[in-house]
Amino acid sequence: MSEDKKTYEGSEGRDSRESSANLIGKPYFRRKKSCPFTGPKAPAIDYKDTRTLNRFVSPYGKMLPSHITGVSNKKQRELAIAIKRARHLALMPYTAR
């Protein structure tokens, strides 16, 4: 019965882990299907472009997992490197209260 594998991506029941209170403010349950970085008009991942990077960081400054933001694996790795560089240059905080 391999159907359940295919429905894994769309299943609602998997959100129990993200029910903690501090996740409410951010659009944590956004069901993003397509990766915002692939496609013709996608922005380049750049450690200087803090406006775009901030969309993939939680209110506490932590990186959001790709299964929430819908970023593809390859772009998520590039995104992680860019965020770490921005943090090193104090363009982005390591932790934001």
Partner: peptide, 19 residues
């Protein structure tokens, strides 16, 4: 001016991703 908002229209009320 950068038109990179989320293509997928989500039904959540705060779906506007204007930064």
């Amino acid at each position: 001016d950068e038109t990179t908002d989320a293509p997928a229209k989500t039904k959540r009320p705060m779906a506007n991703t204007a930064n």
